[in-house]
């Protein structure tokens, strides 16, 4: 019985979000989303770079945080999207799920890289070095970056999409189970070696004047993620159509 239910649920899924319908829907959503992204990010940047006061401790460098924090947030959210989509792909065999997971990976990796880069730039004046192993957040972010790269490498290596999707989904799920363990071990390792006073990225409290730009940037980056995800998913669907056409070309018109 449960199996029957599952099948019908899966079929319903197919009916609601088959690739053709997705293409039509996403085409309509794309422009408004892009416009909203530009608006929110633009406003956020204005507040972050011009209309908010410098920090009394960190000075102007605090402005890096307005890019760093949302990037770090999306780096994690990207992995979340990837893991959930992978689970859906494995369990329900939803045709869009592995497209979504595959498309989310490079975007998540890009945000992770941005978080690492801004963290390093922020660290340079604070720590006097470009990279500080004493910061558990930054180091965890680096490990996350490796997970993304491994995931993308797996997709790139396996030629056949169905097999690649299966393998990549397993990797993403194993990764998502492992992430907390990795994070915990990094923090533990860090406290073990902690020099007395490392200046932390998060700081003690966030002043109210920082909340508005941070919130705007966060919302803007999230929308940017969604927009890019849609664009990449559309590209991936088209890429698979091209692949199928080529296969048909080789098979159908073989013996002229």
């Amino acid at each position: 019985m449960a199996g029957m239910n599952m099948i019908s649920a899966a079929q319903r899924f197919h009916a609601y979000a088959n690739p053709a319908r997705f293409m039509a829907l996403s085409a309509r959503l794309l422009m408004p989303l892009a416009a909203l992204t530009a608006l929110l990010t633009g406003a956020g940047l204005w507040f972050a770079l011009a209309a908010s006061p410098p920090d009394y401790q960190q000075g102007e460098t605090v402005r890096i945080m307005y890019v760093h924090v949302p990037s770090a947030w999306l780096a994690m959210m990207g992995y979340g999207v990837m893991a959930v989509a992978s689970a859906v792909a494995l369990i329900f065999r939803h045709p869009l799920a592995d497209v979504c997971a595959k498309s989310a990976a490079p975007i998540g990796a890009a945000f992770t890289f941005l978080a690492l880069l801004t963290g390093s730039l922020w660290g340079a004046p604070m720590w006097g070095t470009w990279w500080e192993w004493g910061d558990a957040r930054l180091v965890s972010m680096l490990v996350l970056f490796f997970l993304y790269l491994g995931y993308m490498a797996l997709w790139a290596t396996i030629e056949e999409p169905v097999r690649a999707a299966r393998a990549a989904a397993v990797l993403a799920l194993v990764g998502s189970i492992n992430l907390p363990v990795i994070r915990y071990s990094v923090v533990w390792w860090n406290t073990l070696h902690q020099p007395a006073s490392v200046f932390r990225m998060d700081g003690p409290t966030i002043a109210p004047s920082m909340l508005l730009p941070l919130g705007l940037m966060g919302a803007g980056f999230t929308l940017l993620f969604v927009t890019l995800l849609l664009v990449r998913m559309r590209a991936e669907i088209l890429r698979r159509r091209v692949r199928n056409l080529r296969l048909a070309q080789a098979g159908g018109a073989g013996e002229v």
Binding site: E159, R246, L247, Q249, A250, G251, A253, G254, V256
Partner: peptide, 13 residues
């Protein structure tokens, strides 16, 4: 007619 197709797509023949 298959000139632009990668060899991966070809049948054995």
């Amino acid at each position: 007619h298959l000139a632009d197709l990668p060899a991966a797509y070809l049948s054995a023949g």
